[in-house]
Design a protein around this nucleic acid. Structure first.
Lengths: 120, 120
DNA sequence: TGATAGTATAGACTATACTCTATACTTTAA
DNA sequence: TTAAAGTATAGAGTATAGTCTATACTATCA
C-alpha cells in the first residue's frame, strides 16, 4: 500500500509517518520495476509495527527506546537468546509501568473515597 | 523542608522542581515571620504530590493533563460530585493505558514464542 | 491533455519538558 | 568575618517529537 493508505490504516498522519520512517522505525520499498516514480510500498508488517509503536508511545516509551527494541529484534548478528533477553527486559519495564499505573489509580480512588466520606 | 531536601526526597532535580512550581503543579510557602529571606518551605503533602506527578509522567501523562487534574481537585468552586467525575475519568484513562501495556506485552511475549519455536 | 490529487525530499517551525547559566542575595560553619 | 554552600529569579539553550511549507515530480480521470 502507499503512504496514504498506511496513514488511514494506522491513524497516523502522513507527515508523522515520514518522520518515523526517517527515524528508521520502519521502511517502505520502492518497486524497482517501476522506473517512472519512487513511490514507496508498505506491507502488512509495517502496519503491525506502527500499531505497536503507537501503543508503546501512548504508555510513555520514547521513540529511541522503541527503535532500540526494533533494531535488536531485526539485527541479524544477534543470537536468538540475545533477542529474547532484550525483549524480556522490555517486558519487565512494561510490568513496572503497569504497577505504576495501578499505584496512581489507587491514589486517585483513595482520594475519591476520602472526599466522599468527608461529605457526610 | 527546603528545596534541596525536597529534591532528595523525590529524586527530582532542583531545577526541575522549580520548573514544576512555576508550572503551578504545587507551591511552597515562604515563612512570613522570617523577613531576611524568601526561602520556600515544602511540606509532606508536596512530596506526595510530586510522587504522583512522577508516576503519572512515567506512564505517559503530560504535565498539562496532570495540572488539569490537580487544578480541579483543589478547585473550591467545584462540587464534590464534579471532582469525583473528573477523577473517575482519569481512572478510566489509566485503565485503558493498562490495557495498552498488556497488549504490547502480549505482542512481545508472542514474538518470543515464535522466534523460540522457529529455533527447533 | 490538462486539472486535480498523490508522492518525495528538504528544511523551517513549533510545543513540551526540561536543563543550564547568570546574577544576586542569604545562611552557616571555620 | 569571610569562604562555601544554599536559595530565588529570569532568561537562554537543548532534546524530543512532531507539524508545516515549499518545491518538484507522478498518476489518473474527465
Amino acid at each position: 500500500m502507499l503512504i496514504k493508505e498506511l496513514s488511514n490504516r494506522t491513524g497516523i498522519s502522513i507527515h508523522t509517518l515520514r518522520f518515523y520512517e526517517n527515524y528508521s522505525l520502519f521502511r517502505g520499498v520502492s518497486d524497482e520495476n517501476i522506473k517512472t516514480n519512487n513511490y514507496k510500498d508498505y506491507d502488512e508488517s509495517v502496519v503491525e509495527k506502527i500499531k505497536m509503536i503507537k501503543g508503546a508511545k501512548e504508555v510513555g516509551f520514547t521513540l529511541s527506546e522503541i527503535k532500540a527494541l526494533l533494531d535488536s529484534w531485526y539485527n541479524e548478528h544477534f543470537s536468538i537468546d540475545k533477542k529474547v533477553e532484550v525483549v524480556n527486559n522490555k517486558v519487565s519495564e512494561i510490568d513496572s509501568k503497569i504497577l505504576k499505573l495501578k499505584q496512581v489509580k489507587n491514589l486517585l480512588l483513595n482520594a475519591i473515597k476520602v472526599i466522599e466520606s468527608e461529605d457526610c
